[in-house]
Each structure stands twice: as C-alpha cells, then as structure tokens.
C-alpha cells in the first residue's frame, strides 16, 4: 500500500495543502465542492498508478482563503501558476464537479502543462431546458442523498459523525463553493465559446443518475470539446470516484495510457 503525505505550498501569497502519494506519471486531481482534505480510497487507488497530487483549492480544506478569491478565473490563474511552479512536467489533470469546471477554465487558457484531461461530472457549462440540482436549497440530508444513485452510500456518509475539524471544513467549503458558483449557477457563460481550444485528449465520465448535473451536461460537453470521449456510467450518481470506483480507475488509466502510447 502506497503511503501518502501532506505538504504545504505557497503560491500567489496563498498557502495550500497538497495530499501526495504514489509513483509514476504525474496526475493532479482537482476536487469538487465538497473538498478533499482527507485521503480517500480513490486517491489510494490512483496513487497505485500515478504520482498523485491532490491540492485543496484556495478557500477549501486546510488551505488559506485569500482575499483575492472572487471567482473561478482567480482559481484558474492560481493553478496555471501552480502547474508551472510544481515543475511536474506535463501532468494528467482530473477534475470532478466544480474541479472539472476548474480544469476547463485552466485548459481554455493553456494546455501547455497538461498531458490529458479527465472530466468527471464536471460543472462549467449550461444546458438549456435541463434543470440542475440546487445544492444550496437542499437541506443537508437531501444534498447527500442526491449526490448518489445508491442510497446506501448516502446512509453510510450520514451515519458517520464528522470530527469538529471536518464539520468546520465542510462549512468553509460550502461558503467557498457559493462564492465561486452561486451566480451564474455553476457555470461560466463565456466558457463554452472557447472549449474548442482544448487540444489534448479528453475523457468525460458521467453517472447516468447524476441529480446535480444530469448526463445531458456530459453529452453537451462532449460536443463542445474536439475529439473528446464520453463514458456514461450506469447506476451512478455525481461522484463516480466513490460510487463506481473500479470504472473510474479503469477509465482514467485507459485514457492516460492511451494518450501515452
């Protein structure tokens, strides 16, 4: 079993936490609204194939909340700086939900440091006539149940009593999510004009039962990104890396290997 470490890194005056583990080609995982300050099974599995880095975004987890953090553009420029300073060479980039949106914002600006892109239930675009879930109007229980296809995952999460630190971080993450995504809700109207700039191999993974961003969002995204591939996972909600871990890992490894060969 690979071990993981926690490191701090300061960029643009903002100290963030990085969880790192494993060896192999570099892969950066950009987390979604819920954050990623605890080492999770999907990180463990990714670290069996990659030199994995999971940063907590500015405003999330144990990272600072900088004064300059006003929108997704700020995070995108932060991460362009991050990719340059980390000196990883070209890295595989995986983003889930809000982290997928972030990956898109980075990639339309520059793909120079990115080998491949994997978008997992990514936010960032709007599809007319397909209502999204409203995580801000759902109560805590609804939010958890609507995240998964299989209520057993929701029940397991709700049964766990969070530590005080986890509860505080969860609230902090929720605040930062609102700051980034309240309006326009979870998308940037300018983004879809420029997704054609993405010139690297792109895989889009989506749960067929995603209640936050329905799979129509995945299909629309696939049409906007030249050469991208879409895989819809059956009986899966918004977090394939938790609910369909094997499919997530095989999807990412096949995509990144295919790109390397």
């Amino acid at each position: 079993m690979a071990t993981h470490t926690s490191e701090k890194k300061t960029i643009a005056g903002c100290e963030i936490e990085l969880l790192k583990g494993g060896n192999g080609p570099p892969l950066v995982f950009l987390h979604g609204a819920g954050g990623a300050h605890n080492w999770m099974p999907y990180m463990e599995r990714l670290s069996e194939h990659f030199a994995l880095t999971v940063p907590s975004h500015p405003g999330w987890g144990r990272s600072d909340t900088p004064d300059w953090l006003d929108g997704m553009g700020d995070l995108a420029y932060f991460y362009l700086e991050f990719l340059k300073e980390m000196d990883l060479g070209k890295t595989h980039l995986v983003g889930n939900s809000l982290g997928g949106w972030l990956a898109l914002e980075i990639a339309v600006r520059s793909t120079a440091q990115i080998e491949t892109l994997t978008l997992v239930s990514a936010a960032g675009i709007h599809v007319d006539g397909v209502p999204k879930g409203d995580i801000f109007l759902w109560d805590d229980n609804e939010r958890v149940y609507n995240t998964f296809y299989d209520p057993k995952f929701a029940e397991a999460r709700l049964a766990k009593q969070p530590s005080e630190e986890d509860a505080n971080i969860s609230l902090k993450n929720h605040f930062s999510t609102a700051k980034m995504a309240w309006h326009p809700r979870f998308y940037n109207p300018e983004l879809q004009k420029w997704l054609h700039r993405i010139d690297i191999p792109t895989l889009i993974l989506w749960g067929d039962s995603d209640k936050i961003f329905p799979p129509a969002y995945g299909r629309a995204m696939q049409k906007l990104i030249p050469g991208s591939k879409l895989t819809i996972l059956p009986e899966c909600g918004h977090l394939p890396q938790q609910e369909k871990l094997e499919d997530f890992i095989s999807g990412v490894t096949a995509h990144t290997n295919g790109a390397a060969s």
Partner: peptide, 16 residues
C-alpha cells in the same frame, strides 16, 4: 428552512 434564510457567505462563518 434555515438554508433558505441563511445562504452560505451571507454572514461570517462564525456567526453562521
């Protein structure tokens, strides 16, 4: 419900 009345960021984390 409280999430209607108190959206995230409306007040500081502590007062929320």
């Amino acid at each position: 419900p409280s999430q209607y009345k108190l959206p995230p960021g409306y007040s500081s984390l502590a007062s929320y």
